[in-house]
Write a protein that binds this DNA or RNA. Structure first.
Length: 587
RNA sequence: CGGGGAGUAGCGCAGCCCGGUUAGCGCGCAGCGUUCGGGACGCUGAGGUCGGAGGUUCAAAUCCUCUCUCCCCGACCA
């Protein structure tokens, strides 16, 4: 490609309000351009990167027996009504009517359609297992998009679906995907970790997320260096203290002016926060009032709470709602409230004689005990895990880090096949629901995440595996010497003929401009052709990520470039530990 | 949806408070000349519904009302 005609130019500065580094660099490098909120065009350079990622995905999906197909983006609403998600999913699903006044939706994902295909095409256990996938547009009308390609409303995703006769088959398909994903993310150069995750709107029985480390990540993950435990904070657990064995003391009132916070209360009474009980109030989507009780040193995890009580949504309760059940904000107590669903964290069950609110401003109750003084509708693990908490498996302190979710795998079980009637006959002629799994990778997000992890102050550092071009050929203009131009043109032709992807900077620009653009775009190998080196019949080669350049004779240039590219490919395989054993599925 | 910020040339901004020429500046863009190994310089030039609508006024980028859009922080997810 000749840069003089490349569609999309580089920007010296990024728009002021763009903050995420991958967003800035991809914008500046001329890879993406915004259209609207959460809507982004890929310019040729960006599209090449995403296409290469998708090609790697294809190779690895094909390697586990995946069959590529293509399903529509526009779906009749009826199929979403069949699965029950038409009403479950909120405003993130775009809904409209076609000219015949039929309800239609834009695909958020493709479980419904693929299950519809399965019920038409699959009838016998002899056809299973099957893995089908496609790379297709999704539209999710997110409440808030951000960060360039990290979080957009319209995006491209590889989603695959497995169909098996039983749980064991699903386990196998799940493992295959785990390994394929592991290879995919290594091949595109990401540093990542696999964590246990919440199933969210997909439903199903188990889920793992592939999390790439990044400060700009939207998720917090916890992991153990000792035993390998890793989980999204939404579902992470920790090793609980042994229940405290001490006699139950009599409950008594204590006056505690100006202590609406746990810290103020603990300071006033001179006790640790772990001897207090914290009350947190929510309104469930079903209309229930949820009264959560947790030890004062812990925080309620809304995802865990939501899953424990089977609510789809939770919103913080208003002051009026809190008063209506007989509680008092800041001095809430489960003792004596009415019309509330009381959920107690295990920590409160296992710690006797806690100080809790008295449902009166300025007063608390000492020695409050579950069962004796109030009843729980549910005792569950609803605590948020933080850095330093003991690992649930080995007790070592957990580490905490931010990460971007680039892949997600779900065991769906028969949630969709039962609803839509996708069944097969077994060897005995009996009908069963097909056991399904669902697996996704965002290709654009993956590209942006690589930029998050691989950049310096000059620009992007693409791995060769997904770089938009293999080499950037920079011709340094010379006023009274036509040779650089001639040599560059010839090199360009020879490299192209050899199948090397060349971005040829043939623009009439000064050297600094060309070098800076080459660095910004992040092409792994740079070739400079200048009168200065041509005087010695040499050209200059320089790796994007190194400081030194090497000089090679013109007549050996093409062979040397090919050799270096092969070397980079090999070193990447080493760097990405492609030859090592994959992370082992823990399922 | 809640909170915060911003819309003036492709990008970055000034002007707005205190209304008053032809709305400026840097970068970028076009032409000519000089220059040529890390974002050169000179001259000339093109490019603007001041986000939109309504209002106040002799006069609005500037004041008032409404509205749209974008960005950032929180409730959702590839």
């Amino acid at each position: 490609m000749r840069m003089s005609h490349l569609f999309g130019r580089t920007l010296r500065t990024a728009p002021n309000d763009v903050e995420i580094i991958s967003h800035q660099l991809m914008l500046r490098a001329g890879m993406i351009r915004p259209l609207g909120s959460g809507l982004i065009s890929l310019l040729p350079l960006g599209f090449r990167v995403v296409t290469k990622i998708e090609q790697i995905i294809r190779e690895e999906m094909d390697a586990i027996g995946g069959q590529e197909l293509l399903m529509p983006v526009v779906h009749p609403a009826d199929i979403w009504r069949e699965s029950g998600r038409y009403d479950q999913v909120g405003p993130e699903m775009a809904r409209f009517k076609d000219r015949a006044d039929r309800d239609m939706v834009l695909a958020l994902t493709h479980e419904e359609v693929v299950t519809d295909l399965a019920r038409q095409e699959i009838s016998s256990y002899r056809q299973l297992p099957i893995i089908a996938y496609h790379i297709q547009t999704k539209f999710r009308d997110e409440p808030r998009s951000r960060g360039g390609l990290i979080r957009v409303r319209e995006f491209t995703m590889k989603d695959s679906y497995s169909f098996d006769t039983d749980e064991a088959g699903l386990d196998h398909a799940y493992r295959l995907h785990w390994r394929a994903y592991d290879r995919i993310f290594r091949r595109i150069g990401l540093e990542f970790i696999v964590v246990g995750a919440d199933v969210g709107m997909m439903g199903g029985t188990a889920s793992h997320e592939f999390m790439a480390f990044s400060e700009n990540g939207e998720d917090t993950i916890l992991f153990c260096n000792q035993c390998g435990y890793a989980a999204n904070r939404e579902v992470a657990t920790f090793k609980r203290d042994e229940p405290v064995d001490e006699p139950l003391l009599d409950m008594e009132d204590v006056e505690t002016p100006n202590t609406p916070t746990i810290q103020a209360l603990a300071d006033l009474l001179g006790i640790p926060t772990s001897k207090t009980a914290k009350a947190v109030f929510f309104k469930g989507g079903s209309g229930r009032f949820i009264f959560a009780v947790i030890r004062g040193d812990l925080d309620v995890n809304e995802t865990k709470l939501r899953n424990a009580i089977g609510e789809r949504t939770l919103t913080p309760a208003t002051v009026e709602e809190i008063k209506a059940i007989g509680a008092e904000a800041g001095y809430g107590s489960p003792v004596g409230v009415r019309d509330a669903f009381i959920v107690v964290d295990e920590s409160v069950r296992d710690t006797p004689n806690l100080v809790a609110g008295a449902n009166r401003p300025g007063w608390h109750l000492k020695n409050v005990n579950l069962t004796r003084d109030y009843q729980a509708d549910l005792v569950a693990d609803i605590a948020t895990v933080g850095a330093g908490f003991p690992c649930p498996e080995c007790g070592s302190p957990l580490q905490e880090t931010r990460a971007i979710e680039v892949g997600n795998i779900f065991k769906l079980g028969t949630r969709y096949s039962e609803k839509l009637g996708a069944t097969y006959l077994d060897a005995n002629g009996e009908s069963h629901a097909i056991v399904m799994g669902s697996y996704g990778i965002g290709s654009g997000r993956s590209a942006a995440t690589v930029v998050e992890q691989r950049h310096d102050d000059k620009g992007i550092l693409w791995p060769l595996s997904i770089a938009p071009y293999h080499v950037s050929l920079v011709e340094l203009p010379s006023p009274d010497d036509t040779r650089p131009k001639e040599v560059a043109e010839r090199l360009y032709q020879e490299l192209e003929d050899l199948g090397v992807e060349v971005l040829y900077d043939d623009r009439d620009e000064r050297p600094g401009v060309k070098f800076n653009d080459s660095d910004l775009i992040g092409i792994p190998l740079r070739i400079a052709v200048s009168a200065r080196n041509l005087a010695n019949d040499q050209i200059e080669l320089k790796l994007r990520k190194s400081k030194e350049a090497i000089f090679v004779p013109i007549d050996q240039a093409v062979a040397e470039i090919a050799r270096i590219l092969a070397e980079i490919a090999e070193s990447e395989a080493y760097e990405f530990v492609l030859d090592q054993e994959m992370t082992e599925p823990r399922i």
